[in-house]
Amino acid sequence: MSSPSSSVQQARHALGQRLREIRLDAGLTARELARRAGWHESKCSRLEHGRTPPSDADIREWTLHCRAQDQTEDLIATARGIDGMYVEWRRMERAGLKRAQESVRPLFERTRRFRIYQSWVIPGLLQTPAYTAAVLRTVATLRDAPDDVADAVAERMQRQHILHTGIHRFAVLVEEWVLRTVIGDTEVMAGQLGHLIAVGTLPSVSLGIIPMGVPRGVGWPVESFTVYDDAQVNVELVSAHLTVTQPREIDEYAQSFAYLSQLAVYGAEARALITAAINALG
C-alpha cells in the first residue's frame, strides 16, 4: 500500500504543475515571476514542485502577475481541499469533540456501502455509549481537547440510526486483539462485547473477526480505515486524519480490505471469539 500521505503529495504536485502551466502560458520565467511578486527566486520552484503548499495570498499574486485572475478562486479552492486531506487530530478537535463528530454526518448519510477495518478500537458505529465515552475521554486528555464528551457521545449515538434504515450496508472487520483490549473498565468492556454480538446479527451488518495467530501472508495489520462506497477512504493515523480520494489508492485500500476479509471468521465462529473475550474479563 502507498504511503498514507501519498495522496496529499500527489495532489500538491498536480496543483504545482497547474501553476507552472499558468506561468508558461503567461510567457514568464520563474525568475521574472518571483521578481514581480517580491519573492525569493526559489519560491516559484518550491510551489511548482509541490514542496511548499501555496497560501491564498501566494495564489492571488501568481494569477495577478500571470494575468490569470479568472482562475484565482478555483485554485484557492483546490489548495484548501488539499489542506483538508491531511488534518491533525488536534486541529480537527480544537473546536470540540462534538464538532468533530458532526463534521462526518453528511458523509455517513450519503454513503451506501461501508467497508470498515479496525485494528485499534471497536468501530464507532458499533460502540455503546459507555465505550464511546471512555474512548473520547482518553482522546480529550491526550490531545487537550475541549471537554464536551457527553455531547460528542450523543452525536455518535444518533449517527448509528443508519444501521437500521435498510439502505446502508456495513462490512466490518475487527482484529481479535481489539476485543481483548480493555477500554474503560471490565464492566464497560463486557457491555461493549455483548452489544457487538447483538449488532453483528443485524441484516445490514457483516461482522468479521480476524483471529490472533492466523497466518498473514501479505495481509499485515494496517492503520484503521473506512472505505465509503468507492468515493473516498478515511484513514486513522496516530497524529492525523487522512482523506484519500485518488482512485488508484482507493482501489489499494479496497484490495487490502478484500484480503483481510479472507482472514476473518464470521457468524458462530466470530461470536465464539467475542464470547471468549467476555469470559476472559472474569
Rank of each mutant, 00 (worst) to 15 (best):
R105H: 12
Q9I: 10
D74H: 11
H241G: 10
P203R: 03
L193S: 00
T63F: 02
A79H: 09
R115G: 08
H241Y: 10
R180K: 13
Y117K: 06
E41G: 00
H65Q: 05
V205K: 10
I76T: 09
E88G: 11
R46G: 01
E252P: 01
V227W: 09
G50T: 04
T128G: 00
P215M: 05
N279L: 08
P123T: 07
S256E: 14
A95Y: 02
I116E: 12
N234T: 09
E73L: 04
L173N: 07
S256H: 15
A198V: 04
I183K: 05
S3K: 15
L242Y: 02
G27V: 05
D25F: 09
M85N: 06
V205Q: 05
P123F: 03
A11S: 14
A268G: 02
H13F: 14
G184W: 00
L15T: 02
I167C: 10
S45E: 10
T138G: 06
A11G: 12
L196T: 02
H40K: 13
P215S: 12
A264R: 05
R105N: 12
E252R: 13
A254G: 15
E109C: 09
G217T: 02
V199Q: 13
M157S: 04
L136F: 02
P247W: 07
R94I: 11
S2Y: 12
T226F: 07
G282P: 00
L125D: 00
T181A: 13
E236S: 07
G200S: 15
D148M: 01
I122D: 04
E109G: 07
A57T: 06
P53W: 09
A140M: 04
M1I: 09
L24P: 08
G38T: 08
V188N: 00
A150F: 00
Q262H: 15
L126M: 15
E176D: 06
A280V: 06
K98A: 04
S103P: 03
P211H: 09
R60Q: 11
T132A: 15
R20A: 08
R46Q: 10
T243P: 11
L202T: 10
V104P: 04
A37Q: 00
P221F: 03
R99D: 03
T201L: 13
R90V: 14
V8T: 14
T245V: 11
L281M: 02
R91H: 13
R46F: 02
V233G: 01
V8E: 14
A100K: 07
D151W: 01
D25H: 05
V172D: 08
M189R: 01
Q262F: 02
G200L: 08
E175M: 08
T245M: 11
E175N: 12
G27L: 03
L273S: 10
T52K: 10
